[in-house]
């Protein structure tokens, strides 16, 4: 932790280069979002949007903002439900080892292999019977299926690293299983909770197939469907598509950075393990 030597800034330099490399396609997306139609396939390509246009952004700001709100709500709902379902399961599989637990882990593995479109078809049939097509809770519930198996397996892997002595100590202190889970296991698992939340959020944020099948006709459409305003039957408005992606990723990126900050603080605070 205390490695702030003069070498640190040199590392920042390397970090910037690595990040730059990783984000280059993102830069390209931004570049295209400002590009006029006639320059899109210029050869050689323009590195900067010379003669740029704001048409894409004009279209997006006029039409897309409500979709962003929906995406946020769905993302947060997915995170909450995923953690609520998966954390206790991870704890049980890692530490309590009930008979049949491995079989359940195995089922979770299989569950992730079902093609998304088949899952969506199943949900469509169920939701239609229930009349919850085109509702936010419906979409949230469907989106959690993207994250729950992953979350359980990740929680299992991480929670298995919690020293047994820590849990033993809690039991000695007279805490019940539930209390141990709530006040010992969850706090030291903060790290994995954030990891899981992050992925749950990102997966629901970028989900298209559930959104289209289950929420395509309603008032609650997420941003991935918003993009389809620029994909007509024969024609695609690429600067607007890319502009939507840019506008959509800015608030989410800010959220990511804030979350990271919170995690790092949380981890240093909770790092006292033995």
């Amino acid at each position: 932790m205390t490695t702030s030597t003069p070498r640190a800034w040199w590392k920042t330099g390397v970090g910037l280069v690595l990040t730059g490399l990783m984000l280059f396609p993102v830069y390209w997306m931004i570049n295209v979002s400002f590009t006029r139609d006639q320059d899109m396939r210029a050869s050689p390509p323009h590195l900067f949007p010379t003669n740029g246009t704001l048409d894409g952004y004009r279209a997006v700001l006029d039409q897309q903002l409500p979709y962003l709100g929906t995406s946020f709500l769905v993302g947060l709902g997915t995170v909450a439900l995923t953690v609520a379902l998966a954390a206790p399961a991870g704890y049980a599989l890692a530490k309590l080892r009930p008979p049949g637990g491995p079989a359940l882990s195995f089922l979770l593995l299989i569950a992730q292999m079902i093609p998304g479109i088949i899952m969506a078809m199943g949900f469509y049939a169920i939701y239609l019977t229930l009349g919850v097509l085109n509702t936010l809770p419906g979409l949230i519930l469907a989106d959690t299926t993207l994250a729950v198996p992953f979350a359980v397996l990740i929680f299992t892997a991480f929670m298995s690293g919690i020293p047994d002595e820590l849990l033993q100590a809690a039991v000695v202190d007279g805490a019940g299983r539930l209390r141990t889970f709530w006040s010992v296991v969850l706090p030291v698992s903060r790290n994995s909770i954030v990891t899981v939340s992050l992925f749950a959020f990102l997966w629901s944020w970028s989900d298209f197939i559930f959104a289209s099948t289950l929420a395509g006709g309603g008032d609650h459409q997420p941003i991935t469907l918003g993009i389809y305003h620029y994909i007509g039957n024969n024609n695609q408005q690429w600067n607007a598509i890319m502009a939507t992606a840019v506008v959509a990723s800015i608030p989410a990126a800010v959220l990511l950075i804030l979350a990271q900050r919170y995690v790092s603080m949380g981890v240093t605070a909770g790092a006292v393990k033995d």
Binding site: K11, G15, L18, M29, I241
Partner: peptide, 27 residues
């Protein structure tokens, strides 16, 4: 390793995940 901006840069590397696949694959 902890160096200035490490957290922010690491968070930024996740940005590709925020993009809908149709956008990143098209890019």
């Amino acid at each position: 390793q902890h160096f200035p901006l490490s957290r922010t840069l690491r968070a930024l590397i996740l940005v590709p995940w925020l993009l809908p696949l149709i956008v990143s694959a098209s890019t």
